[in-house]
């Protein structure tokens, strides 16, 4: 197993390389470049000035020169400077990453904790009123566009009831530290986390339901039943464990969706996360930042995938990873 893990980690190196080249090439093909960000369309700017900016940002160099120079620096741990703000990329990303991770992790946890019981109940009580009720609820969840839900919740809980903050992650009138600061952040997190987990919750409970129904139809469950095991034991020991298998995949591949797909939630709730940075940097062709965000996300997903595959082997002994 450890050999397998090492092999996978080694394989990740060319993968990261491929991703960096792919992303860099796509930015290169896209119209416009980072020098364009020095223009305020409300103001208008002298084209000669932009040419100067382009030279000062090194954008007059050909594609391969910039890629190789970027690659060389990155390999030594230097992520370079944002072309837009001229601040170190490590700072731009580092300041925001924890905010997004805390939001994403909470949403992931909440969805998982709620989706599995809902899916299990639906599967066990298949085709009953309970199943239909939960199905409809889950499906309504999937079918509501995320910004629509966010705006509605915001209207009700922030504006009408005044219970929850509408924006940001901290109170800005006062510096809060210690426990009060933690509570303050948690308070600001409630709405965005709810919104983020809602969509996952809906689809995950569907997957859990499907998975469990699949497992319940398998031979070994029949065998277990015919051995006279209690239904509850069949369910928890045999069926549930195996039905979690596809859930691990689903969850693992949802990680980047949650973390990077938080853009809309982050915008509506003015959350200082990396999703907004990603979108701004794409619009501005700020390639050092785009590359950093992309590679971070790549590391995240490679990690999640590896985790999923290892869990597979753990959960389903029939699957073996040969370390040829």
């Amino acid at each position: 197993m450890s050999q397998y893990i090492i092999r996978r980690l080694v394989q990740a190196i060319p993968l990261l390389f491929a991703i960096s080249l792919l992303t860099f090439a796509i930015i290169e093909i896209a119209p416009g470049d980072a020098a364009q960000m020095y223009i305020d369309p409300e103001k208008g700017t002298d084209p000669a000035y932009i040419e100067q900016v382009r030279v000062s940002l090194g954008l007059d160099q050909p594609f391969y020169v910039r890629y190789i120079s970027w690659l060389g620096k990155t390999l030594t741990g230097d992520l370079g400077y944002s072309l837009r703000t001229r601040r170190p990329v490590s700072l731009e990303v580092g300041d925001r990453l924890p905010n997004t991770l805390i939001l994403g992790a909470s949403a992931l946890l909440l969805s998982f904790v709620l989706a599995i019981p809902i899916g299990v109940i639906s599967a066990v009580k298949r085709n009953t009123a309970v199943d239909y009720g939960l199905s409809i609820l889950a499906l309504v969840g999937i079918s509501i566009p995320i910004f629509w839900l966010a705006l509605l919740l915001l209207q009700v809980f922030s504006i009408q009831l005044g219970w929850l903050p509408a924006s940001g992650m901290r109170n800005m009138r006062q510096e809060l530290t210690g426990f009060a600061g933690v509570i303050d952040v948690a308070h600001h997190m409630v709405l965005p986390v709810l919104v983020l987990s809602f969509a996952q919750l809906a689809s995950w409970s569907r997957y859990q339901r499907s998975a469990l129904i699949d497992v319940l139809g398998q031979d070994y469950i029949r065998t277990a039943r015919s051995k006279g095991l209690a239904e509850r034991r069949v369910l928890t020991v045999h069926a549930l464990k195996n039905s979690l298998l596809p859930m691990i995949t689903v969850a693992a591949i949802s990680v980047p969706t949650i973390v990077m797909g938080a853009y809309i939630t982050e915008t509506i709730f003015s959350w200082p996360g990396i999703g907004r940075l990603g979108v701004t940097s794409v619009a501005g062709r700020d390639y050092p930042v785009i590359m950093a965000v992309t590679l971070l996300s790549a590391l995240l997903i490679i990690g999640s995938n590896l985790f999923a595959d290892i869990s597979y082997a753990w959960a389903d002994p029939r699957i073996r990873y040969d370390s040829r």
Binding site: G261, V293, I301
Partner: peptide, 22 residues
């Protein structure tokens, strides 16, 4: 699966924005 991983590992929404831009 490495190809799949490559696509999976690039944040989809950012890639979508870039491709939409192109």
């Amino acid at each position: 699966m490495r190809i799949t991983d490559t696509f999976l590992a690039v944040p989809g929404f950012m890639l979508l924005l870039m491709v939409a831009g192109i």
